[in-house]
Design a protein around this nucleic acid. Structure first.
Length: 496
RNA sequence: GGUGUCGUGGCCGAGUGGCUAGGCAGAGGUCUGCAACACCUCGUACAGCGGUUCGAAUCCGCUCGACACCUCCA
């Protein structure tokens, strides 16, 4: 069978061109994708999770289409400067000093937290997850190349990228739509004592002050790499000088991604990325979630409900469903009310998927399932439009009920395709975890006990002993077990 | 101040020059011992003001408002 991508033509919104473009990888059938990972100096917050979840969905869809994808996502465990002045201290070192532990201990702790959280949200691990500290040598090599090519200069043990020089022969600012002249005109003259030739220049290598704990030897003395360099280095190393997709949060577009382009072009002379993808912000109270301003919620609090903005806890699948209901390029505002709405929709969808499993085929089909399938692919091919896909899934929910009631029919072949498609989109692409299914998979004993309770309640109802029957029903509901009285007896569902 | 994005029904959130997503909430109904669950039916919204057009919420201009980036942040 030929791979799906030969039939399904994916379009991706490219931040570089500002338009949707047909996706065509450099090497047919293969995709190289790089996503900027977290800086591990504190717990990831829900806004971070949204971005990684968006690219997880993209990764999953590319794989679904039959592409062989190498997905690289870095861990930033060194280098991010605390401020632009010459403090020479990065966030990880500062945190380590405050907590009186080794920097790598901080890194380890928050890397584990990051992995745990993403796993809970059903994100696949990337193919390669390189660390900045593991690629110091490679970073130094790139700095050397940039100096050799005349686009960087050394000053007092630090190396800076010469943006003005670069802009003479290249276009600095084309990703973010900025013009260097405008930037110069609007510069705030604060860092007057800076070693930089121009305020727009950025550090490739920073000299380590004596109190700085994270340091490595280099041709320019002991120091540490600048904060844009790692991504250039590691994407080049694992995906090549040119690769297909580079993703990250919208807030990284400038200066981070702009600097990456500049570094690549200044070192190897090639435009590194064909498709730039930027995921939009998750807001809280209408404002961007941000560690530095304190306007954020920790992902773990979603599950427990321990947050002033939450009325209760939610299973990870609900949060994922909520996020997938918005397009990745739109700002999404987080609220308890919106999450509650998503929760109901999520369980309704999952219930229907459950019902679908037990449906039986007819000899013929009364409607075209292929038309529906096409609309699902059309949604995803249109720049990963997961909200439209979900709308189509709710169309499928209607079909499922009509099939169940015998109002519509599907042949064995069509039913099989229907089931496969639903499973592919719900579980493989959107990765909505079916918490109801996992609950009853390992609860044989519970289901036996429930069957008994249902039997007792049915008998009580037959005897018109409604106080007993209602007691059973209400007590179970308290525990999150919903009894459902149908025409053919009572069934139940377990909500977590 | 500069750059960019956006402003959609009670809420969330797609989309688009004419065929008017979807979810939640709400209303009515079927089912039920009463319920819950489930299912069926129902809402003609697109910031304001001009303009282009046979026709705009969708294109253009202006106004107002919001957000993001310009400084570490997904």
């Amino acid at each position: 069978m030929s791979p799906l991508y030969q039939k399904q033509h994916l379009q991706i919104y490219n931040s570089l061109s500002g338009t949707k473009e047909v996706f065509k990888p450099l090497l047919e059938g293969n995709v190289g994708m790089y996503v900027c990972g977290p800086t591990v100096y504190s717990n990831v917050h829900l806004g971070n999770v949204r971005t990684f979840m968006s690219f997880d969905m993209a990764f999953r869809y590319l794989k679904h289409l039959g592409y062989k994808v190498r997905y690289v996502r870095n861990i930033t465990d060194a280098g991010h400067l605390e401020d632009d002045a010459d403090q020479g201290e990065d966030k990880i070192a500062k945190k380590a000093r405050l907590e009186q532990i080794e920097p790598m201990e901080v890194v380890q702790q928050y890397t584990i937290d990051f992995h745990n959280i993403l796993q809970k949200f059903n994100c696949l691990p990337p193919s390669i997850e390189p660390t900045a500290t593991g690629h110091i040598i490679e970073q130094i090599e790139i700095v050397k190349e940039i100096i050799e090519n005349g686009f960087a200069y050394e000053k007092n043990g630090s190396v800076y990228f010469d943006v003005l020089k670069f802009n003479e022969s290249h276009d600095y600012g084309r990703l973010s739509g900025r013009k260097l002249e405008d930037m110069i005109a609007n510069t705030r003259e604060l860092a007057a004592q800076s070693e930089k030739k121009n305020p727009q220049d950025f550090a490739l290598w920073k000299k380590a002050e004596p109190q700085h704990i994270m340091r490595w030897p280099s041709p320019w003395g002991e120091g540490f790499p600048g904060w844009h360099l790692e991504c250039t280095t590691m994407s080049t190393k694992y995906l090549g000088e040119q690769f297909d997709i580079h993703g990250g949060g919208m807030d990284l577009k400038f200066p981070h991604h702009e600097c990456e382009i500049a570094q690549s072009e200044a070192s190897c002379g090639k435009n590194p990325v064909n498709y730039w993808m930027h995921a939009n912000m998750l807001t809280l109270n209408g404002k961007k979630m941000s560690k530095s301003t304190g306007n954020y919620i920790n992902p773990g609090q979603i599950f427990t409900g321990e947050n002033e903005f939450l009325s209760k806890g939610y299973v990870p699948g609900v949060a994922r469903f909520f996020i997938m209901q918005a397009h990745y390029r739109s700002v999404l505002d987080f609220s308890d009310e919106a999450l509650q709405a998503s929760e109901k929709g999520f369980y309704r969808l999952m219930e229907a998927v459950h019902v679908l499993k037990g449906l039986e085929a007819s000899s013929t089909s009364s409607f075209s399932i292929q038309e529906w399938i096409d609309s699902c692919y059309a949604a995803m091919n249109d720049d990963f439009n997961s909200p439209i896909l979900i709308a189509q899934l709710f169309e499928a929910v209607k079909y499922i009920h009509q099939l169940k009631e015998g109002k519509e029919k599907l042949s064995a072949e069509d039913l099989e395709v229907f089931k496969n498609t639903i499973n592919a989109f719900v579980f493989d692409v959107l990765a909505l975890e079916d918490s109801t299914a996992s609950a009853d998979a390992n609860t044989d004993k519970l289901s036996g006990a429930l069957d008994l309770l249902i039997k007792l309640r049915t008998e009580a109802r037959a005897n018109k002993d409604f106080s007993t029957s209602d007691q059973i029903r209400d007590a179970l509901l308290e525990m999150g077990i919903q009894l459902k009285d149908g025409r053919e007896g009572t069934t139940y569902s377990i909500n977590q």
